[in-house]
Simulated assay, not measured.
Amino acid sequence: MPDATDADGLTVGQVSTRLGVTVRALHHWDEIGLARPSLRTAAGYRLYTAGDLERLHRIVVYREIGLGLDRIRTVLDDSPADVPGALRAQRTQVAERIDRLQQLSAGLDRMIDAHERGLLLTVDQQAAIFGPQWNPDWPAQARQRYGDTTQWLQYAERSASRGPEEWQAIADAIAGLDRALGDAMDAGVTPGSPEANQLVERHREVFASYFPLTRQMQVCLGRRYEADPAFAAHYDGIRAGLATWFRRIVDASARAHGIDPDTATWQ
């Protein structure tokens, strides 16, 4: 490495400022032989010449478009005729990356909407799937009431990935469960029986479409079905007394799993 005076080139710090790269990066490129300063002062400090700076400019450009250091070395040191091919290959990779980012952006938009709205369906879609008794204001009311809970977060994450077909399948599963509950009550199925316990487990599985439901949470939900006028009207509209019967089979199942329904909490 030829000796020079300080006026013959730029120091590492000066190049770092001029190109907007870190001193550490310049030292690394020097160590791996990608861009070495051509001069050294009498005091031993390395200096970059105009030619060195031109190479560094190209490295910065190629790095910003996504080329790795090994690929940059090849582009810089091999035949200039190879450069367009390398850049075309990189352009293809960039286009693929842009497509993935656009998909990610669309997914994030849906996730944001799901957190804020709860249900990513139009009013007409909601009516077609959930029936004429469905109130399209319910998701917004639920967001206002439960929006700061873990369960709303879990519900929103599931909702973001669902379209009308998935929601129709969930609505069908709920309707099927409601019919099974009414039929079981008519048949005289008793709380704590295998048939009743099977229905309790089925309820937890169906409800998991919204968020995971623990047994303690299910007890709390059973009490809400019985005490809340809207829920009670729904279940009692299927069969008179069904809300209370459902609460009783949930309580019996909870006891069988060592849970006291009287002290169960939402956890």
Rank of each mutant, 00 (worst) to 15 (best):
V60P: 10
Q103R: 15
R158K: 15
H257F: 00
G44D: 05
F211W: 15
G176D: 12
E205K: 09
R255S: 03
E195V: 03
Q14V: 13
P212F: 00
A95I: 12
W29C: 10
I129L: 04
G192I: 01
A169Y: 06
V83L: 02
G51W: 06
G13L: 01
A42L: 13
L119D: 07
V250Y: 01
V123M: 03
Y225K: 00
D82L: 14
Y146D: 11
T122Q: 09
Y210M: 15
Q133K: 08
V60S: 14
T122V: 06
Y45K: 11
R63N: 05
R58P: 09
L213N: 09
A7Y: 09
T190A: 12
G85A: 03
G131F: 05
L181V: 02
R248W: 09
Q90M: 08
A243S: 12
A156K: 11
G237D: 05
Q218Y: 02
N197C: 01
L101S: 11
A252R: 01
H28V: 01
A240G: 07
P2Q: 06
E165F: 10
Q125M: 08
A7I: 12
A171M: 02
R110V: 07
P164M: 02
T74E: 15
G222L: 01
I98T: 03
P80W: 02
Q218D: 14
G9T: 10
I98H: 08
H234A: 06
V83Y: 05
E165G: 09
M217P: 11
L67F: 01
D30Y: 04
Y155E: 12
D236Y: 03
I249C: 00
G192S: 03
A95R: 15
S161M: 15
Q126G: 12
Y62A: 09
L101Q: 15
V206W: 06
Q14Y: 11
Y146A: 12
F207H: 14
R204C: 04
A4C: 04
T150D: 15
S159R: 11
Y235M: 02
Q133F: 08
A196C: 01
T149K: 07
A254D: 00
G241M: 02
I249K: 00
Y225V: 07
L120V: 11
L34D: 09
N135Y: 07
R179S: 01
R36N: 04
A180T: 05
W138D: 13
T11D: 05
